[in-house]
């Protein structure tokens, strides 16, 4: 049994094609990424020992300080977590406002 939603079922066929197109585009994107990955990975293999120099061999002026990177990592985690929590709170507020309006309309229609 098909599940109906607010979009209605009259345009079902067109929407099925739209869905399939979206899935096909996503598959192609993932495929392209995979192909790029394979191409990028192949030539890199022999040069790995040359590409990664032990940290002790790098002159101090070329070494990156660890503290800002560490601080950035922890800040990023906090910003993402709080940002996401804020989007949930905002969306929930908007839906609850709409819900209260709809409840009032249902109440008014009932009266």
């Amino acid at each position: 049994m098909l599940r109906l939603d607010r979009f209605g079922v009259s345009q079902e066929k067109a929407l099925v094609y739209r869905r399939l197109t979206i899935v096909a585009v996503l598959i192609v994107c993932v495929g392209l990424l995979g192909a790029t990955t394979t191409q990028a990975a192949q030539p890199a293999q022999p040069s790995v020992p040359e590409g990664f120099v032990p940290m002790d061999d790098v002159p101090p002026e070329d070494q990156l300080p660890a503290a800002p990177l560490l601080a950035a990592a922890y800040v990023v985690v906090w910003v993402i977590a709080l940002g996401y929590l804020w989007t949930i709170w905002r969306r929930l507020g908007s839906v609850e406002k709409e819900l209260a309006d709809a409840m009032r309309r249902v109440g008014a229609d009932g009266a």
């Binding site: 599940r3 209605g8 079922v9 739209r18 869905r19 979206i22 899935v23």
Partner: peptide, 11 residues
């Protein structure tokens, strides 16, 4: 993306 734009049945 599928949930947001897929339409009916995308669930």
């Amino acid at each position: 993306i599928l949930r947001a734009y897929g339409g009916p049945g995308s669930d």
